[in-house]
């Protein structure tokens, strides 16, 4: 797994609530059997005027004028600011792959949908929960100053603004550990192989109908 330690990245504010994974990466692109290449279709329906289909040459398409990611000042953004319940809807991990492939490393929002939140860590992508007022403040500062960057330090669990203002965030200790080190969690689980086998043996006795 990709690790995450710290970044200092350009910020883009997209202060909508309930941004769903269908919007992040529309279904026609889920037909791919690969993990990569989803970035050009991130927010496809919002980002382009013409309908998108898999395998299209993106350079021939019509970008939607007022969609925020198309504004030149946000080119190369790595940190997305969003409203409540980001990543709701479908469990598609393709949503994280698309954000990551586009170049984002982190989303900062007041709340996330559970499955999206879980999926993020698997790609070394960091979802950060801070209070709504704080996200709104970041967004206001960002809109007011072109080139606005935030710096995120996972080890210290902090987000720092250009003026040096520091906000701390919570993260589960196990997840932090895996993310900092880029651990493969299947490998970690398989270190507990004996415990799994023991559980299974006991369960076969107590609930044999589950093993036919």
């Amino acid at each position: 797994m990709k690790s995450f330690t710290q970044i200092d990245g350009l910020v883009v504010p997209m202060m909508r609530s309930n941004v769903d994974t269908d919007a992040i990466i529309p279904k026609q692109f889920l037909k791919s059997i690969k993990r990569s290449g989803f970035g050009v279709n991130l927010f496809d329906a919002w980002r382009y005027d013409d309908p998108g289909f898999p395998g299209q040459d993106a350079s021939t398409r019509q970008p939607t004028k007022d969609f925020i990611l198309n504004a030149p000042r946000y080119k190369g953004a790595q940190i997305l600011l969003a409203g409540d319940n980001f990543g709701c809807g479908s469990s598609r991990e393709h949503a994280v792959w698309a954000l990551d492939d586009y170049g984002f490393r982190s989303v900062i929002a007041p709340s996330f949908a559970d499955i999206f939140f879980n999926n993020s860590f698997k790609s070394g992508f960091l979802p950060i929960v801070v209070e709504e007022a704080v996200v709104e403040r970041f967004a206001a500062e960002c809109e007011a100053s072109e080139g606005y960057r935030l710096s995120i330090d996972l080890a210290a669990q902090t987000v720092t603004t250009p003026s040096g203002d520091v906000t701390t965030f919570e993260i589960d200790a196990f997840r932090k550990h895996c993310l900092l080190n880029g651990f493969d969690d299947i490998g970690l689980t398989l270190q507990k192989r004996d415990a799994i086998e023991q559980y299974e043996a006991a369960r076969k006795q107590s609930a044999p109908w589950l093993f036919t």
Partner: peptide, 23 residues
């Protein structure tokens, strides 16, 4: 019963388990 992402699908395939915290 709950939905999982593709990395977790692979995790369940390989280990029959998921790393979880109780909600």
């Amino acid at each position: 019963a709950f939905g999982i992402g593709t990395s977790e699908v692979e995790h369940v395939m390989a280990t029959q388990c998921l790393v979880q915290k109780k909600s």
